[in-house]
Design a protein around this nucleic acid. Structure first.
Length: 307
DNA sequence: ACCAGTCAAGGAAGC
DNA sequence: GCTTCCTTGACTGGT
């Protein structure tokens, strides 16, 4: 069975008023601190309520769910110097954490995260490493707080990035910094193949990166199409699949018609070949839950309800 | 009500 | 070595 996954936003719920909010540092800094904290707190609470409702929605539809990477704007941003405890609605936020934990424990929805591309554990810049560790640890502590398992059932996925040095050097540098992460955070990290030709292909990840780090490799269909590095799709997905100790969570998208093959489509239309493997599959497409619904109409074998 | 410009961030690619 | 682009939705300020 292959469950499909919703990424961050449900368009259906958005119509019903469950949307995400953010706050830029520029705006935060332009307001008196008290007012800034109040606005930020309100928005974070709103994001948590939306997250909770979206997890319920995923439970109803048997989707897996990737949380937004911007639930907590500015919370790990050095210059803003703000923590959750500083927010005037801190108690309400804690209550909402409890509600989310309750939703998760009663529905068993698989929840994952995809921290932003600006996180890098292979950078040569110490400051970048520090900031990335702070951000990754924070998201992991959020996962702890809402009762998610400290293993790859709740994976936190990102990229290796940085091509300074040989592949081996980069992997070792990554691993040295990886070991500085909180234990629970380490236990959740997984790494995805890249779509750019000079970045990490599946082949390099499974042949070089994985033996050094033992970190599971996420297979991304579209990225592999853009950067196959002489591996067939079947070989690539099999080799990624073998790096997981639990049901893998992979990524699916198709190219948007136009000049940039890396741009993501609105709704996928092609047949997805799972090669008989069991894994969950995040739909990285513009039309979000509407696309999942459409796709399941088109390909009932991906409908995991009522079968 | 609407629209265009803006936004914190790292790295790759293009010049 | 510098600039631009990547990518994204939501905010912000001007009309």
């Amino acid at each position: 069975m292959n469950r499909l996954g919703l990424c961050c936003i449900s368009l259906k719920l958005k119509e019903q008023g469950f949307g995400h909010q953010t706050m830029t540092f520029k705006r935060f800094n332009s307001l008196p601190r008290e007012e800034a904290l109040e606005t930020l707190g309100d928005r974070i609470l709103n994001n948590l309520v939306t997250t909770n409702r979206t997890i319920q929605f995923c439970a109803e539809n048997n989707y897996v769910y990737r949380v937004s990477s911007d639930i907590f704007p500015l919370i790990t941003y050095d210059e803003a110097n703000v923590s959750l405890e500083d927010l005037p609605n801190h108690d309400d936020i804690q209550d909402e954490f409890d509600d989310i934990a309750q939703t998760i424990s009663s529905t068993n929805v698989r929840v994952s995260a995809h921290p932003s591309e600006f996180n890098s554990l292979s950078s040569l810049n110490e400051k970048v490493i520090e900031k990335s560790i702070t951000e990754l640890n924070f998201y992991s502590s959020f996962f702890d707080r809402i009762g998610l398992p400290a293993d790859r059932r709740s994976p936190m996925n990102f990229h290796v990035h940085n091509n300074n040095g040989t592949r081996e050097e980069i992997a070792h540098r990554f691993y040295n910094n990886f070991k500085k992460l909180d234990e629970n955070c380490q236990s959740r990290i997984v790494i995805e193949n890249d779509d750019k030709l000079n970045c990490w292909s599946v082949k390099e990840l499974v042949d070089i990166f994985h033996p050094i780090t033992r970190i599971p490799i996420t297979f991304d269909y579209l990225h592999h199409k853009c950067h196959p590095n002489n591996l067939t799709e079947q070989d690539a997905i099999n080799r990624c699949w073998e790096t997981w100790q639990t049901t893998p969570l992979f990524h699916y998208s198709e190219s948007r018609p136009g000049n940039n093959p890396r741009a993501h489509c609105d709704i996928p239309t092609q047949t997805i070949n799972t090669y008989g493997l069991e894994f969950d599959l995040d739909f990285e497409v513009k039309q979000k839950d509407l696309a999942i619904h459409e796709y399941q109409q088109l390909y009932p074998q991906f409908s995991t309800i009522g079968v």
